[in-house]
Amino acid sequence: MKVLMVRIRIWDLPTRLFHWGLTACVLGLVITGNVGGQAMIWHFRLGYAVLGLLLFRILWGFLGGHWSRWTQFPLQPAGVWAYVRGRHPSGHFAGHNPLGSWSVLALLLVLALQGSTGLISDDEIANMGPLSSLVSASWVSWATSWHKGWGKTILIFLVVLHLLALAWYTWRKRLALVSAMWHGDKALPHETTATRDNGPSRAMALLLLAISVLAVFGLVSLGA
């Protein structure tokens, strides 16, 4: 018997723009970081953009649409274990599934650490983080080592893992996760709460983004 699928708005526009904006910035960061030289000017700019986007996402996790809120991330260890074993009571997740939730959090945390260490890094050649003069030499040395070494490696690993997971869900489970993050709707076998995605909500997102950008600008200006 064929199950009738229902299309429901899951991802609001601000969340989708955040996702694709962050994707573009991370790609640009990896490219400019490897090219070096004059490309490092854009590396810093993209790093500031990522910090602004991360701050926005933190705030949006409290004030955004239903499925974009942190409370909708199924993070309980028992639920993750049940999902891995294929015994989770929720067979179809409207938002992020347990593994996806932890994957998103891990990626955001590593990006936050990369952005933070970038602010106080110094390669002792031509590139110095705007806040490196405000911390001790030992902190600068550790931040530089992490940012260029383990931090970069872990970030690339998480990105590749994320892409492989998307490919697996797309081709093996036939779930259109990428297209859902593009237009916002998911086809579900049951009715569920639709996310709020209207004019007032988007206006709120713009306000939060402006606050986030100003906060990052103010932080960076501390080292001027």
Rank of each mutant, 00 (worst) to 15 (best):
M1F: 10
V3N: 12
L4S: 13
V6R: 14
R7D: 14
R7C: 01
I8R: 14
I8K: 13
D12K: 02
P14G: 07
L17W: 12
H19S: 01
H19D: 03
T23R: 00
G28E: 04
G28D: 03
G28C: 02
G28P: 01
I31W: 14
T32Q: 07
G33D: 14
V35L: 14
G36H: 09
Q38G: 13
Q38Y: 10
A39R: 10
H43W: 06
Y48W: 13
V50H: 00
L51S: 05
G52Q: 09
G52P: 09
G52K: 08
L53N: 03
L54G: 09
F56N: 07
F56R: 10
R57N: 02
I58K: 09
G61F: 03
F62I: 12
G65T: 03
G65C: 08
W67N: 06
T71S: 14
T71H: 09
P74I: 11
Q76T: 11
Q76I: 08
A78Q: 13
V80M: 13
W81M: 12
V84N: 00
R85N: 08
G86T: 08
P89K: 09
H92L: 06
A94E: 00
A94H: 07
A94I: 07
H96S: 04
H96Y: 08
W102Y: 13
L108R: 03
L109P: 02
Q114V: 04
T117L: 00
T117A: 03
L119S: 11
D122H: 12
E124Q: 14
A126K: 10
N127G: 02
N127R: 07
G129P: 06
S132K: 04
S132I: 09
L134W: 06
V135R: 04
A137W: 03
A137N: 02
A137S: 09
W139N: 03
W142M: 02
A143D: 04
S145D: 15
W146R: 06
H147P: 01
W150T: 12
K152V: 02
K152T: 13
K152E: 15
F157I: 14
F157S: 15
F157V: 14
L158M: 13
V160R: 05
V160A: 14
V160T: 05
L161G: 12
L164W: 10
L166V: 14
W168H: 12
T170G: 07
A176I: 01
V178I: 15
A180S: 15
W182G: 00
H183S: 05
H183R: 10
G184K: 05
K186Q: 12
E191S: 09
E191T: 08
T192V: 11
D197V: 11
G199A: 13
G199C: 06
A203T: 11
M204C: 06
I211V: 15
S221T: 11
G223D: 04
A224Y: 02
